[in-house]
């Protein structure tokens, strides 16, 4: 499916909950509301025309203006198309639901985001730390303004 067809199909289903990002990338970019996040993922996986069978990236982002987002990069091997789905999170209490029951790849990606950004994924089957060393006790290192032991910030140019 082309970018326009994917956009149209998702827009039909989710209406105002789906916000389309205008850019000149070859794949469509969306923002989905938090309430419909799981539903969109489930639809994208199971709909025979969209058929997003592969999640190749789930990343968290902390923007300098102190908001959190989770971004998913979806891909369909069968139909040969891609899409990027983003969801905005509450910046005081960044939480969303897990999608690791839809794509199993999300399990470790969510553990990584949980550990490095402190984002909660509700209903995650195994919410253990993944990457940092065992006695890590210094908070969430990928957040803006984080400092820790022997951390040297980049000097001002």
């Amino acid at each position: 499916m082309t970018k326009e067809q994917i956009t149209a199909r998702l827009k039909d289903k989710f209406g105002p909950e789906l916000e389309i990002v205008e850019n000149n990338q070859p794949e469509p970019y969306f923002y989905i509301s938090m309430a419909k996040y799981y539903e969109l993922c489930s639809y994208a996986k199971n709909d025979p025309q969209l058929d997003f069978d592969f999640l190749f990236q789930l990343g968290a982002v902390h923007y300098p203006d102190d908001r959190f987002e989770v971004a998913l990069c979806l891909c369909s091997h069968e139909k040969n198309h891609k899409a990027v789905v983003k969801v905005r999170l509450d910046h005081d209490n960044p939480e969303t639901v897990t999608i690791s029951d839809i794509w199993k790849a999300a399990n470790w990606f969510e553990r990584e985001a949980m550990e490095l950004f402190g984002i909660g994924f509700f209903g995650h089957p195994d919410p253990q730390p993944l990457l940092l060393y065992d006695d890590w006790d210094y908070g969430y290192p990928m957040r803006k303004g984080w400092t820790g032991p022997d951390f040297v910030p980049m000097p001002e140019k």
Binding site: L132, P141, M142, W146, V152, P153, P155
Partner: peptide, 10 residues
């Protein structure tokens, strides 16, 4: 990795 890095030993 000297600046702005949480994971690398200096």
């Amino acid at each position: 990795f000297y600046y702005d890095c949480y994971s690398v030993l200096k």
